[in-house]
Design a protein around this nucleic acid. Structure first.
Lengths: 244, 244
DNA sequence: CGGAGCTCGATTGTATACGATCTGGCGGAT
DNA sequence: ATCCGCCAGATCGTATACAATCGAGCTCCG
């Protein structure tokens, strides 16, 4: 059972990502590629040839280049001059920086979001938790993917509740890059432990124990990071292994 | 006396902004426009016609479009479909969100940076403070501009000391947008008060009083924001005033 | 048999071309 | 005189064209 068929990110109100930067086709391409990366359908290091992508969407290289450039900005794609664009292959150091940034930002976001939370927001969060739980119990690659995605969505949902578009965009980027990192360095077994931690966090917020919620959040992020194996760099591209 | 003649941002090691996204001419154009915006040489609402900009740099519209798109991503430029690109005209709400985000992020950055600070770093900060002081005592528009710029550089310098490129890039964006906001909504008189606050912050860090430094930083940011007049929207484009 | 150099195909970087859309002015009708 | 519609110029959106660069395989020589 594939858990996604429509545009996945309609779940969370994306604040138009970059204000009103790019339009129509270009945005569609960008979003499609981003989803594919975050979902691990495109493995890190995969080459994104402009002509090929353009052919898939029936557009010229012009629009593809625009979409790729946007993804470079988000850290999901890298380009090497005269060689082309590739799905990003974050280094262990970069992974550490991403999670360090999350540990700094997310408590602040939680605090700000808590100030705006209504019963309706809590209902939304509880639904998300139920979804996560359901995915956790399923087997198979696609469930695993959906689980990573859902886990990220939880954090994005909280960011959205701050009503702060600037922070929301930062979180969008951080979560997307985190998904990429997890897909690269995540140990096979778990990431499931995260679910109960999410529940605890919501419980704490709802109980008005904001300090506790913040501590849980930091702990949770540290927990996700601890589940990575950053010792070795997974080899997706020979060049990355052979010449550093 | 114009305080800038060479590329201004060479002062602070920009971590290649977007990894290694765009190259050569395109980056030069982007940086030139960004500097002009942050420096208030380009007022909010100014139209950035692709052909004109291209003529200035002797490049085709292709590269200009790329540079403008990058600036859209950073929130310094907005584009309206079939109408063109304009220097961003942040709303009061957007301004609030930018500063709210800074209040959340910067204490974390300060804490992280403090862990990495060496005597050489403190020397760098002290030099920056001296520069700020010098600019503060000067008169005239260009000194005012340089002062805003220098004040932002202080915060960027601290961000650079975290060694965290992800956070540094976020701060780059926040500081640039802050400069734009200040140029729009800043009251005429002050912003000078910021200087002594910077000094106090460095003093506190050097004395090992990290908590105090963090409190001073938050206070400082709140102080900058308090100096804005967000009640009215300065009219640079009629459309922004007439149809809210 | 192995390696240096070369040529060719594939792909990117940049410029240009062309159709679409908006803006502003002119002229005719009311 | 005012308002509406039309036309022209300017500007953008997208596609295409052309040059530059890279990489692979081939050949040729040692």
């Amino acid at each position: 059972m594939n858990s996604r068929q429509t545009k996945p990110e309609t779940l969370i109100a994306r604040p138009d990502a970059d204000g009103n930067g790019i339009d129509g086709s270009q945005r569609a391409i960008r979003d499609a590629i981003r989803d594919a990366i975050v979902d691990r359908r495109l493995m890190p290091g995969t080459k994104l040839t402009e002509t090929d992508v353009g052919a898939l969407f029936n557009v010229s290289r012009t629009l593809v280049r625009g979409a790729l450039q946007a993804l470079v900005h988000e850290g999901l794609v890298t380009v090497e001059r005269n060689r082309g664009a590739f799905v990003a292959n974050p280094s262990p150091e970069e992974a550490r920086q991403i999670f360090a940034t999350r540990r700094i930002i997310e408590p602040g976001i939680l605090t700000e979001a808590a100030r705006h939370m209504t019963p309706s927001h809590f209902r939304q969060l509880r639904e998300q938790l139920v979804d996560e739980g359901r995915l956790m119990s399923e087997r198979g690659q696609s469930a695993r993917r959906a689980e990573i995605k859902a886990s990220g969505d939880f954090h994005l949902m909280i960011a959205a509740m701050t009503g702060n578009a600037v922070m929301q965009r930062f979180m969008d980027e951080l979560i997307a890059r985190s998904s990429l990192v997890i897909s690269l360095y995540g140990q096979s077994t778990v990431s499931s432990c995260g679910h109960s931690e999410h529940t605890e966090i919501v419980d704490a917020i709802e109980a008005g124990q904001l300090d506790r919620a913040n501590r849980l959040m930091v702990h949770h992020i540290r927990h996700i990071e601890a589940d990575l194996d950053l010792r070795i760099r997974r080899a997706n591209e020979l060049r990355d292994v052979l010449l550093p």
